[in-house]
Design a protein around this nucleic acid. Structure first.
Lengths: 346, 346
DNA sequence: CTGAAAGCGCTTACAG
DNA sequence: CTGAAAGCGCTTACAG
């Protein structure tokens, strides 16, 4: 008992019309004017047979699949979860499906994902937080598939990018701590291949320089953008010989881990250590102490990414999808002060 | 400049062989034995032209797309995010892509998603937490598309279901509170159409009955499975005339909201109110106080769901995908005691 | 208005 | 071993 689905040919036969007629009513083609009577008959049969158009055949013919590939490092990270949610919602509204791909910050895996995305003829792919130019990106470019990169290296813009000024974000976070009188600010970074991490670090250094402070590399420890990593890194920092009075974690998840490690060491946040995060995930305000953080305009990022994507696919005309020049969009993160940071105790 | 990709025909022409030969080497067909020399030539040209097989054409021909539809209420909820992550990973390993769909607990939206999944000829769909039998499910059944339902109503089993004994979970949570001496146990439910919510409620009632306690409907308030909803519901409970000494939130997110609302009312958790959640999301142990909760074996759920799916698609043989009888799998949740619950103060 | 037909890029018997 | 060909289900000119 194989899977059998009604086709346009089935409908046509049953309705006593040609298959092309069926296609016309399915697609609401206006170039031909079908008599109401015929249309109704066709629609009745479609209903009766539970007709569902075959998107594969349609895509093969038309060159469009109404499918977007979304590549994120980890959809479990609330920031990417929010992005995915927004992209999916926006796509749904516009009639696009999204294929979810987790790259795990791994270029090899990202590349493998892009291969299948390409094979599946997606109309475009949206990338989050990957490391600069890659083989995958080149492949996409070669095949003229529209690409939108979110949080791409701001110093290396292409015309398909929605960019967040992470350097500014890093600066704002550090500056906030400095303004509170902290002089030893620890820093928990992300994977060093990620420009979204290196940019934040640059901002951190900017703020220190502005305050006339030297960068103490002993205060910079690598994290993995996850709670566990943040906890481990903060533990190293707080157990160090010259422990910081404040910690800037490069994302909220690691900040939560840092707070947890402070608790383990019986340090109070913010009385003994201030902690600031980055992202402003919904959880940031729900935990205790509520997290001071740098907010990224998540829904705006997603909205713009989608807009850029749509513009690119339309630009090429039906079925061709040639990317055209779209200006890069730079978004500014903002400081949200809550309760996890405080002036340094004297 | 339309999007142009090399096809098997292009390769064939360039390599001086027939197109079928190319197909054979692409698919590693063993029924024909191609001379090494020919194979190498073909592979060289494939490499040179950057050949990527067209999955649309392949799917149209073969009847398989190596694509799974995943329908969750909200991929932003860490529980579903974890599920999605696992499914995606497992799928990737087996060569399947996943199309992500958020239903928002909305049957109409779920139905719309299923229509496009059907049109896109997915090899199967995995559902999370939807309300019982629906139009969408019937449609899938009619088209003989394999379906795996996660956390389906245990009292209404079908043969394509991975089931978690939520009633037991609800019982365990309530029993734990009762064991600590609590007599007024508030309860924050989920959407009432969800069996994963009504089952937990049944378990709650089981435990009360066992302890010889009456159900006080004033202690049962609806939530939405999100932080905000949990906070609002807990506020109602704790501001009520007969406020509970313990709260059972039907998921961890709402438990976090409940803890937050206790803080607003200057109540200490667990000294003044105990709070227990459900799910055991990674965050549960990272917050303060660490959350006592009912753990769901997330990775096992995902693994089994994938296994059932694979079994179903294989059962029908290549390209037919007829679901066969697969026994339902019942998983047991477990109690994880952490710091958000304590014996009642006297 | 309506139909016959080409062709999208593949896989897979079927002949040589 | 190798090639010519049918056909998956559509869309879209092209004739009548």
């Amino acid at each position: 008992m194989p899977r059998t689905r009604a086709t346009q040919t089935d409908i046509a036969r049953r309705a006593g019309v040609s298959q092309a007629m069926v296609s016309y009513v399915v697609n609401g083609n206006t170039r031909v004017s079908i008599p109401d009577e015929t249309r109704r008959r066709i629609e009745a049969v479609m209903q009766e047979l539970g007709y569902v158009p075959n998107a594969l055949a349609r895509g093969l013919r038309s060159g469009q699949t109404r499918t977007i590939g979304l590549v994120v490092p980890d959809n479990t990270n609330p920031f990417f979860a929010e992005i995915a949610r927004h992209i999916e919602n926006l796509g749904f509204e516009k009639g696009f499906s999204v294929i979810l791909c987790n790259s795990d910050y791994d270029l090899v895996k990202e590349n493998a994902h892009v291969d299948v995305l390409l094979a599946k003829q997606v109309d475009g792919v949206i990338f989050c937080a990957s490391g600069g130019a890659t083989e995958a990106r080149d492949k996409l470019r070669a095949s003229k598939t529209p690409v939108v990169t979110i949080d791409h290296d701001i110093s290396n813009l292409r015309n398909e990018t929605v960019v967040i000024d992470y350097r500014l974000g890093g600066y704002l976070a550090t500056r906030h701590l400095l303004d509170q009188g902290h002089r030893r600010v620890g820093c928990i970074t992300g994977p060093r291949t990620l420009s979204s991490s290196t940019e934040r670090l640059a901002g951190y250094q900017d703020a220190l320089a502005e305050a006339g402070l030297k960068v103490d590399t002993g205060l910079i420890v690598p994290g993995d953008f996850r709670i566990q990593g943040g906890e481990a890194a903060a533990l190293r920092l707080l157990n160090g010989r010259r422990k910081p009075s404040a910690i800037f974690a490069f994302n909220d998840l690691m900040a939560i881990g840092a707070i947890q490690s402070a608790r383990i060491l019986e340090l109070k946040v913010p009385a003994d250590v201030s902690v600031i995060g980055f992202d402003d995930i919904p959880l940031a305000q729900a935990i205790h102490p509520a997290l001071t953080t740098i907010a990224q305009p998540i829904s705006e990022i997603a909205r713009l990414a989608m807009e850029v994507f749509l513009k690119q696919t339309q630009a090429g005309g039906t079925g061709t999808a040639t990317p055209t020049a779209v200006p890069s969009l730079v978004l500014k993160p903002t400081l949200i002060v809550r309760s996890s940071t405080a002036p340094i105790a004297r």
